[in-house]
Design a protein around this nucleic acid. Structure first.
Length: 927
RNA sequence: GCGGAUGUGGCGUAAUUGGUAGCCGCGUUAGACUUAGGAUCUAAUGCCGAGAGGCGUGGGGGUUCGAGUCCCUCCAUCCGCACCA
């Protein structure tokens, strides 16, 4: 009987679905194991072969864990809100919900065809009101909490109010930018609105005027991780800075915990490093400089307080609030000109020209806190509004940017740090700044001769004494802007009364997304939800018209899977106590700074509330590599419609043209298909080699425009899902990027057919032997058991596939059709190739699904060898092999080796200086 | 510029503690079976060499009886961050 993968795969996919084979129970005596895939955004293009790579790996691991006796939670769902569906809606008028539903259906079909062991009863879709009810619910909780730095956790706003009533805000230590102090009495005298405005400075979800990344083409603001090089990640449109009233999440309150707990999870070093960089902790000092003839103070942040005696000017960012009041009359025109120029530059321009120096002098002077010298205050765009205080003390001798600025505007440069016993060169002769991180302080008054480290702590001590500064820690991480001026996202559960925002009652959730006539902003420039009719509460208060960003729905989805159908709670305590957190999370590295930071924050907040039970959501995380495309090229002779084969192309002037890979097999072009591809090629002529047109090739990104996209459906049609699954794993290590090359898939297909044939006799009839397995058969099996188990446990799926091939080759050579052996081998293979093994398992007489079988136990006794075939080397070079019993002592081995005729030949009569014998490894003779 | 990763046959890769470099698969070559082969099977296949043998894990150097693996140095490629004070 032939291996008919089509029937087999259909049969078992139906069986699994009908019997809910992979349904996970929230109650079990078994240990739990939670395997999660990063859920996909269902795009219109469907899945290509790169998407399932991680899904296949996690599926193998899930199936393996079930056979190892775990209760496995392996769910799947859809990150269904997103820009493409909305852009499409804007163009066509089709409701994004319809597009999304169609795309989800297509995704589901494609996923089903690959044979994944998901518990589909737990599916979530972020755009489903039953799901986003809990996204809205969490937002309300964030609004109702503040961050107490003393207890280092989120606490209820109601408690904060009672503190305010008792002692104002003088005693609290909260995560907030609000610096004014008020007493209990002052609090009580505030109006309702004033109180609400005050509280807004403490809430973890807060509304404020913020500098945002505004993307005019997308008509929305974007979070920092959604902008790269001044362009939007989605679409690549320019982004500008703009001050807008926006919802933000106070993720910065969690910066230190997000940083610290990176140490506790098993993620790749590179990913941990990306997160650390994104959080960007730096230690230093905040120092307040007095300003000459002014009541204002200039606050700066520096990581190098030890260089304070090298300050020769101060620099403010062009957005700095003191510019207005500090600028002197005679400098005003210049300053205004500069500020305007800087303001109108796009983020992109600004980032492109980081080398050019620009700036303006305010005419004002700061007073050095130690020397009392006057220090000119300048403005330049090289100081960023978003970092520290937006103002710096410039130490040109030891900072390259300050140095460039000082040289350009002819400002003094004073060296204050030097290496021990170093010859001092006057700074006028320097060509660059001296960015030294170790050394001793010079020209520095009271800290002279101290080390950099001691100098810094001395200065911090002194400024604290003078009450003009303190040691501080600064983070690069910004609060997450949470409003989007788009239609296709979660509505905020917020209404406005007296222009202050209030939360809906929990009972009113979910607040469902309303219908609108168009998916565009209103004429007044309000977001699309402003078009909705009756977009108010029952009492007529207007509802929020912004929607939540893409990361809202994906931040807590892993928790919802634990109890996906619970209508009363986000998830029950019973469910979370059992499932805890994700044991294995697999997905792409592109989420390193977005999703993975936000969901860690989300989880920590829910942890503070006593809902989540683990500090970190994802215990182990693996980033699967990208699958690159293999493009094919044809070479057109310039100015002609003639194409020349790859090996002859250098004899002509040619242009390489991407050709669709579906016309090409083994780099040989199907000329007829190519001619039909485009009208212009119909009359094309070809210069061949050996009667064939051979295409050139290159490894590139897999993309529609490069005509190199491999679609899994076609491959499943041709080879079946089991072959696709195994081939994707066989390609190479999971975490490495690798090109997709269909050539090798035949080898895996051949392997499965050879495996199938083990169970059939020469007449093609199913026939297995029920006799006792031979020692040889047991050995082949048990070597495979050990290898496959070890490989799966260390996520080395490619080498496991190779172990299967070795075993099947050996079983074929041994003409093995032993039932016991084949039964165990089927279990081994079933996590990789679930369909074919279910079929064989059934043919072998089993009634239950193979996924419920126990993973075979490795038994040492079947693989022990009596002899070891030693490589005998001379001076490290292997010369011949010689077999010895394993328990033979080194002395006897040495004596026998040296007597061997082969050894005599290599010794050439010399006496060996040394003989090294490593048992079961090697014999090395040194001459 | 800073940080991270990777370099092994024609190609994808393997070598888990420093111990036989190239497992497995693709491709290629030759052969068998066949009306046919894009089915199946057999054999060969790192490079040089007729052979003996020599050379080989990005380059150079080192440690070691022994290095793909450890150390130093240089080069190349990829990814992330980038005026972060």
């Amino acid at each position: 009987m032939e291996y008919n993968f089509k029937d087999i795969e259909q049969k078992w996919q139906n069986f699994w679905q009908k019997n809910k084979t992979f349904k996970a129970d929230n109650q079990s005596d078994k240990p739990k194991f939670y395997v999660l895939d990063m859920f996909p955004y269902p795009s219109g293009a469907g899945l290509h072969v790169g998407h399932p790579l991680g899904y296949i790996a996690s599926d193998i691991y899930s199936r393996f864990k079930r056979q190892m006796g775990f209760n496995v939670l392996h769910p799947m769902g859809y990150d269904a809100y997103g820009l493409p569906a909305e852009q499409y809606a804007i163009q066509t008028g089709q409701h994004p919900a319809i597009t999304t539903e169609i795309n989800i259906k297509r995704y589901r079909e494609q996923l089903d065809k690959i044979g994944f062991s998901y518990d589909w009863d737990r599916e979530v879709q972020t755009c489903d009101p039953k799901y986003y009810k809990w996204t809205q619910w969490t937002f309300i909780q964030l609004f109702e909490h503040w961050y107490n730095k003393n207890s280092d956790k989120a606490e209820a706003i109601s408690e904060l109010i009672s503190i305010f009533e008792k002692s104002g805000n003088t005693e609290i230590n909260a995560a907030s930018n609000f610096e004014e102090k008020f007493t209990a009495q002052e609090w009580q005298q505030m109006s309702e609105k004033e109180q609400q405005e005050t509280l807004m400075n403490y809430r973890l979800a807060y509304l404020s005027d913020t500098m945002v990344n505004w993307c005019p083409q997308l008509g929305t603001v974007l979070a920092n991780d959604e902008v790269v090089n001044g362009l939007s990640v989605r679409g690549g449109y320019p982004v500008e800075r703009k001050l807008m009233k926006q919802w933000s999440l106070r993720i910065t309150a969690y910066a230190q915990r997000l940083l610290d707990d990176i140490e506790t999870v098993q993620w790749s070093d590179s990913l941990k490093e990306i997160q650390r960089n994104w959080i960007g902790r730096s230690e230093g000092a905040a120092v307040s400089f007095e300003i000459k003839d002014s009541e204002h103070k200039l606050d700066i942040f520096t990581t190098r307080p030890d260089t304070i005696f090298g300050v020769s000017f101060m620099v403010l960012c062009p957005e700095h609030e003191l510019i207005e009041s500090l600028t002197t009359a005679e400098n005003r025109a210049e300053v205004e000109k500069y500020v305007n120029w800087a303001k109108n530059r796009s983020e992109r321009e600004r980032q492109m020209e980081t080398k050019s120096v620009s700036g303006a002098f305010t005419g004002a002077y700061a007073i050095h806190p130690f020397t009392k010298e006057e220090i000119p205050i300048w403005i330049s765009e090289y100081v960023l509004a978003g970092y520290g205080t937006g103002a710096i003390m410039a130490v040109p001798a030891h900072d390259s940017r300050d140095f460039a600025f000082a040289r350009h505007f002819k400002l003094p440069i004073t060296q204050v740090i030097a290496a021990q016993n170093e010859e001092i060169i006057p700074t006028e002769k320097w060509e660059d700044s001296y960015d030294i991180k170790e050394g001793i302080c010079i020209n520095s008054d009271i800290i002279n001769n101290l080390s950099v480290e001691d100098g810094a702590s001395k200065i911090i001590e002194l400024v604290e004494e003078k009450a003009i500064g303190k040691g501080t820690i600064n983070y690069r991480l910004r609060d997450a802007i949470f409003s989007r001026q788009r239609y296709w996202g979660e509505p905020f559960p917020v209404y406005y009364k007296d222009e202050m925002p209030y939360m809906l009652n929990i009972e009113e959730l979910p607040l469902e997304l309303p219908e609108v006539d168009k998916y565009l902003p209103t004429e007044k420039g309000e977001p699309p939800l402003a078009r909705a009719k009756n977009w108010t509460t029952k009492d007529g208060y207007p509802l929020e018209v912004n929607t939540m960003p893409g990361f809202a729905g994906s931040s807590g989805y892993y928790l919802r899977y634990m109890d996906a159908n619970n209508e009363n709670e986000y998830f029950s305590q019973e469910a979370v106590q059992y499932w805890q957190n994700v044991d294995l999370y697999i997905g792409g590295a592109e989420h390193a700074t977005g999703h993975l930071i936000y969901s860690r924050f989300w989880n920590k907040f829910l942890y503070d509330l006593g809902l989540a039970v683990k500090k970190e959501p994802f215990e182990k995380l693996i980033n699967q590599g990208m699958i690159q495309g293999r493009s094919n090229f044809v070479y057109r002779i310039n100015g002609k419609n003639t194409f020349v084969t790859h090996s002859l192309k250098d004899q002509y002037e040619t242009t390489a043209i991407h050709v669709d890979i579906s016309f090409v097999e083994n780099d040989i072009l199907d000329i007829e298909k190519f001619k039909q591809w485009r009208p212009e090629f119909e009359t094309a002529e070809f210069i061949l080699e050996d009667g064939k047109y051979i295409c050139g090739w290159e490894i590139e990104k897999m993309s529609k425009s490069l005509h190199n996209v491999q679609n899994p459906d076609e491959l499943i049609e041709k080879y079946g899902a089991d072959t696709l699954r195994m081939y994707e794993m066989f390609l190479g290590p999971l975490e490495q990027s690798k090109p997709w090359d269909t050539k090798g898939i035949e080898g895996v297909f051949r392997f499965l057919r050879r495996y199938w044939r083990l169970h059939f006799n020469d007449e093609g009839k199913f026939e297995v032997s029920t006799e006792k397995p031979t020692a040889e058969e047991q050995k082949i099996l048990h070597i495979a058991i050990k290898k496959v188990k070890d490989d799966i446990e260390r996520f080395s799926f490619n080498t496991a596939v190779s172990a299967f091939m070795v075993a099947v080759n050996e079983l074929t050579d041994a003409k093995c059709n032993n039932k016991e052996i084949l039964e165990n081998f089927a279990i081994l293979l079933s996590s990789f190739a679930p369909h074919i093994t279910e079929e064989i398992w059934q043919m072998l007489g089993n009634k239950e699904s193979i996924s419920q079988a126990d993973f075979p136990k490795f038994e040492e006794k079947y693989v022990v060898e009596n002899d070891f075939n030693y490589p005998v080397s001379f001076n490290g070079k292997t010369r011949f092999m010689m077999s010895f019993p394993i328990d033979l002592d080194a002395k006897s081995i040495e004596a026998q080796v040296l007597e061997a005729p082969e050894a005599q030949r290599w010794l050439e009569g010399k006496t060996p200086k040394k003989v090294i014998i490593v048992p079961k490894r090697i014999i090395n003779i040194v001459t």
